[in-house]
Design a protein around this nucleic acid. Structure first.
Length: 278
DNA sequence: CTCATGACCTGACGGC
DNA sequence: TGCCGTCAGGTCATGA
């Protein structure tokens, strides 16, 4: 579910809520997430440590703990966090519960169990990666994401641009919704081979990605059904979506001239306007 | 290396 | 009402 704006929203909320708290204990109710939770390592990595920061990298969250440890978290499709008073009743699919020293507990909830909770040592390698994060491309909202570098990366790929945008090694944090929205904004057909995106189109796509992600973060993300931030609030970007989830509707740019179409690409639904996107 | 496909899970929804 | 197929915001392993 969550893409960069949703993970950013959740990460900011967790940072505000958790920094300064000390973890008294951690309970793993269901270790069988996408990667099996190593309970021993999680307990050793968490208990009696203070939470110092929560940061985002791509769609991952890194919770920094004192004494050089961290937690690497991913929300998969349906992961969420909430914070409750200690002893509050838990729900089905509450898989990990951290008890804090201030009378609250922090809960990881994930019905589909595509998320992960991985304890790691807090160390930077020479590429700036933390712990067991996979190889990730540049942060699209950072200065390190330049048109030149983006164009170079695209020029090596023969796959459709839509699929390449979903490759986290090319640029980090883009998922199905924002890939489709950015391609619409940039007027690029999702089936276009990435290597055949010219300099001008690449510049438009670069700008579109930054614009859509920035606006979505300002809205607290996009809620289609499940997604909620830590406080339980919905993201408000859904009303700004131009094409995602709107097959058969009039294109918002060319009006009634063309209808939005949907086609499967790499197993995911892709929405686009056949008239406006080339 | 690149690329496409299916697997991993649960729940919601529509058709019959 | 209930059963079945399909679909869902993500990643990862596998084989061509």
């Amino acid at each position: 579910m969550p893409e960069l704006p949703e993970v950013e929203t959740i990460g900011r909320a967790l940072h505000l809520q958790l920094v300064g708290a000390r973890i008294l204990q951690v309970e793993v109710r269901q270790p069988r997430l996408r990667r099996l939770v190593d309970i021993e390592a999680l307990v050793a990595g968490c208990v009696d440590r203070r939470i110092e920061a929560v940061r985002r990298r791509g769609k991952y969250l890194v919770v920094e703990l004192n004494r050089q440890r961290c937690l690497v978290l991913h929300l998969g499709m349906t992961g969420s966090f909430r914070i409750e008073p200690a002893g509050a009743p838990t729900l089905p699919h509450d898989h990990v519960v951290w008890e804090l020293d201030d009378g609250r507990c922090w809960i990881f909830h994930d019905p589909r169990r595509f998320g992960c909770v991985v304890p790691a040592s807090l160390s930077l390698d020479d590429t700036g990666r933390r712990g067991p994060l996979p190889e990730l491309g540049p942060e699209p909202l950072s200065d390190g994401f330049t048109v030149e570098d983006f164009h170079r990366r695209l020029s090596r790929r023969q796959a459709p641009i839509k699929n390449v945008l979903l490759d986290q090694r090319v640029v980090a944090g883009i998922g199905n919704i924002y890939a489709g929205e950015a391609l619409f904004m940039a007027g690029i057909n999702p089936r276009r081979r990435a290597a055949r995106i010219g300099r001008d189109s690449c510049r438009r796509l670069h700008r579109a990605l930054r614009e859509v992600l920035t606006e979505a973060i300002a809205c607290g993300g996009t809620t289609i059904s499940d997604y909620r931030s830590v406080d339980g609030l919905r993201g408000r970007f859904a009303v700004h979506l131009q094409v995602y989830g709107k097959p058969g509707e009039n294109c918002p740019r060319c009006g009634a001239v063309a209808k939005i179409r949907v086609l499967p690409m790499a197993g995911r639904s892709t929405f686009y306007c056949p008239r406006c996107q080339h």
